Simulated scan of single mutants.
Amino acid sequence: MKKIIVAIDGYSACGKSTTAKILAAKLGYVYVDTGAMYRAVALYFIEHYINCTNQKAVTEALTQIHISFIYNHKTESSDTYLNGLNVENEIRKMYVSEKVSEVSALPAVRKNLVEQQQKLARKKGVVMDGRDIGTHVFPNAELKIFMVADMEVRAYRRQQELFARKQIVDLADIIANIESRDLMDTTREESPLRKAADAYEIDTTYITVEEQVDCIMNIAVGRMIELEYRVEDI
């Protein structure tokens, strides 16, 4: 069937990345974690003391950043590499989470990473998750999904993710971090987080990851069949 671009947007800790990874594997598509890309840039800025208000420093720093994804056979998923170093675990830590929304709001950063994201999907057959994929990166994506969930559930999920990485963080601190990120993501001037008019909204509060994947998989297959018939009709 005709390959498509699946754009998955939504708030943090709604299950976007987990669902997108499994969906891509089931479809035989490439998975691109755009959130990891922004986290990698945030980590570089932190480690190199880049001031986000210094446009010259930001622009110069971006020329020194190379992000890639390499498949990890042990975890059966892709790890994020920053300038040749595996930073998959480091970019998931709270100190990076506290910085990533500020960094991702910078026009120069978004322009740089959006260009990279668009190159990765030139041949389609891609599942990409983030916050502006269906509205800005791929406004013409054949399938757009927008994921939401209750705050308490989102915070608990993030706490469990951190615990799995041997990081113990108080739930109240996680809620504060998520609320801060939500505010910055939805109010930033550069491609803010919002639901695309033609996106399917999925509330993941009370459904499992498997149910999320099955739901999107059914929509994706239906969309591909629809496009196949359109091509044949022409």
Rank of each mutant, 00 (worst) to 15 (best):
K3G: 03
K3T: 08
I5D: 07
G10E: 02
A13H: 01
K16I: 11
K16P: 08
T19A: 12
L23I: 09
L27E: 07
Y31V: 06
D33F: 04
G35H: 06
G35L: 06
A36F: 07
Y38E: 09
V41S: 11
Y44W: 13
E47W: 04
Y49K: 14
N51G: 00
K56V: 14
L62T: 02
T63S: 14
Q64P: 03
Y71V: 00
S77D: 14
S77E: 15
D79C: 06
G84Y: 08
L85M: 13
L85A: 15
V87E: 12
I91G: 07
Y95C: 00
K99I: 02
S101F: 04
S104W: 03
S104D: 10
V109I: 05
K111R: 11
K111G: 08
Q118A: 13
K119C: 11
R122A: 07
V126P: 02
V127R: 07
M128H: 06
D132A: 07
I133V: 13
H136S: 13
E142Y: 01
L143E: 07
K144V: 02
I145P: 00
F146V: 07
M147H: 06
V148W: 06
A149Q: 03
A149I: 01
D150R: 08
V153N: 00
R158M: 11
Q160N: 14
Q160C: 13
L162C: 06
A164Q: 14
K166L: 07
I174G: 03
S180C: 01
R181Q: 06
L183F: 04
S191D: 05
P192W: 02
A199D: 09
T205M: 08
T205E: 04
Y206A: 11
Q212L: 04
V213N: 00
D214Q: 12
M217F: 15
V221Y: 10
M224C: 09
E232K: 12
